[in-house]
Design a protein around this nucleic acid. Structure first.
Lengths: 204, 204, 204, 204
DNA sequence: CATGAATGAGATTTCATTCAT
DNA sequence: TATGAATGAAATCTCATTCAT
């Protein structure tokens, strides 16, 4: 990659980050290209040098976020640890990510309602990939008899739903910090899968 | 309520139902008043006879849905049954409702990003009411030592998140029918709270 | 005129008065038929029983106001008094009228910009009539050599302009009451016409 | 001011002039942004590049007109001449201005009925400034005992009313040209203030 | 007579998109 | 590359007008 290409790639990412930030604040449907550009002291015209159109830009933000999530979970899987630890870490990462980017998957909207076929397929494919890593961990746990035998897809969706919903209620003013909160949530959710009561941190 | 008032109330509800339907299909920000009106063979102008403006209309749909949910959970609480049964039934009702109306709370968007102060407060108040009924059941279970001692608000949010997220992944083509699915989900989620393994419907 | 006709005539006048009031408050272009009707606890639909359309209604208000003004000035002319007294009384009446109805001629708009040909001609004709009474008094004064020889039309327009403009600046909170104010204004304006300084109420 | 800023300022003024012209022809409430834009071969959308909204645009036209008037009267005051000459010249300028722009102050409407608080205050302030220059001249004349002692505010309002009303009756077809007419009017109105009969151009 | 309800034309406004410079 | 400027389609909203009851 030449220097020029690097610069372009850098700028593209800047725009994507800006978009993520603004969308997380104002919501997808109230975010205009003007907003995104202004945040970078650009004009909206320039955005078209880097992205085909608004849909493309939004798609890229989603793709970027999911890809980062995929990297996260890949790392978690490769790390040492038993399956419970892995799932726990994956969830913590996910929750921290959701809170940090103030955005769950799909910016709080159903991708079907926003993207056209071309982008939709790609998004759904990426999403599917990420989900499959979760499925893999869950399946492992079930096979190792550490987890209850469950309908993997349903449970995975429950976990993701509970975690993505955090966007709706998390407040930085809460008494728990992000890490602590993520751990608490993960532990609660693990109970859906864990056999026995060993992990049930009995609070007073 | 006079006949006339009934008629107007009926029409208002028709419009709200139409709005719920269209929004659930196309998403909030792609739904125009034209769409909503056309679905009832009205013109968009007529909508303004019944609602102050679009924001008012959207607010009313949300209020209606939450109020119905509140009725549901109130009934559940008043019915016979132990606390586990009550929470289970409340969750099943919620899931069925979400699937039927194809809409979780807040049409998949953060109300803060859509409503202005006046409406926002009312929505948040209604939502808070509904949530408090859940909290009440959970607290009861904890006090009766049937549920683990937990952070009630967090757990309630996890349950609601997992259930509302169903909108994103439920497909009528699935092998489980709605009732069965709702039961399955509820049973999984109950494990977050239940002590012992008694409820863990060991599949297979 | 039958009782029925009387009732209708009465209602028509009610509506006209209501229209005058609302227009004087909100301005012509912000006044809707709804406003006018609501002020009488009617619905706008009913207005169409009494008036062909909005233009007709507005036209009638104007016609009514000018006709009343014409009656006023006719009476003034027929009363006893020298020409100066007559002009003074005519002006006082006009000013009082403008303040009372909070409306000069033509609701502050050029009739050409509001009325279509049919109504326009009638309005201009009525207006012309009223103006001709003023002209008559002025001409009399000139012929009697009580007034300066002037371009009658120009002076009449200056007088009317100065008087109609009162709408723009009159405030009920002022220290002068309406009668006093009207007299003061009339005396000032008379100086345009009066020979010698006899009327110049030398203030301190 | 950079070239770019000049260009944009120029365009803004073009739009304002266009607005003044159209409003003077069709009246404020019949003038659409479409009209104003079309007159400049633009589209209405473009207007929003230069002005926040219609109210802003209208406000700017008013501000522009009053500011020009203020410049005019300032110059008149600074010029040589006795107080009578100054008031005469100020009036002539005002009348010529009103005829040229075919618009008195406040486009023939009460600003209270058109502008919201923010704009209203600014307009009233500007208007007040302009009026204060008139007041200053009148007060000077009174103090120099050249003018009758009068209620300055009332007389100023009468003068302005008489002059602004010209919009309603001036016709280019009249036998007097604009300058001549403005002089005639000014001389008539001066009689309200002048002591003695020296200025009363005795017409035949 | 009166009105509730609906309509539709038109106005304002927003904003993604384009394009010349 | 970047941007200023313009565009046009679409959305919201208003309101005079109509009409069945």
């Amino acid at each position: 990659m030449s220097l020029r290409e690097k610069k372009i790639a850098k700028k593209r990412e800047d725009i994507l980050r800006s978009a993520v930030k603004i969308i997380s604040e104002k919501g997808y449907h109230k975010t205009t290209l003007e907003d995104i550009a202004a945040h970078l002291y650009m004009t909206k015209g320039s955005i078209y040098y880097y992205f085909k159109d608004k849909q493309d830009l939004i798609y890229q933000t989603q793709a970027m976020l999911i890809q980062e999530s995929i990297e996260n979970i890949k790392n978690v899987i490769e790390e040492q640890g038993n399956v419970t630890e892995k799932l726990r870490r994956a969830m913590i990462k996910h929750i921290e990510f959701v809170i940090r980017e103030r955005m769950g998957f799909s910016i709080g909207i159903k991708p079907e309602q926003v993207f056209e076929k071309q982008y939709l397929e790609k998004i759904l494919h990426l999403r599917g990939q990420y989900e499959s890593y979760f499925d893999r961990i869950i399946t492992m746990g079930v096979e190792e008899k550490v987890f209850h035998p469950v309908d993997v897809k349903i449970v995975r969706n429950l976990l993701l739903g509970a975690m993505n919903w955090v966007v709706q209620w998390y407040s930085p003013e809460g008494k728990k910090d992000v890490k602590e909160l993520a751990e608490t949530i993960s532990d609660y959710l693990l109970r859906i899968l864990l056999k026995g009561g060993e992990n049930s941190t009995e609070e007073m």
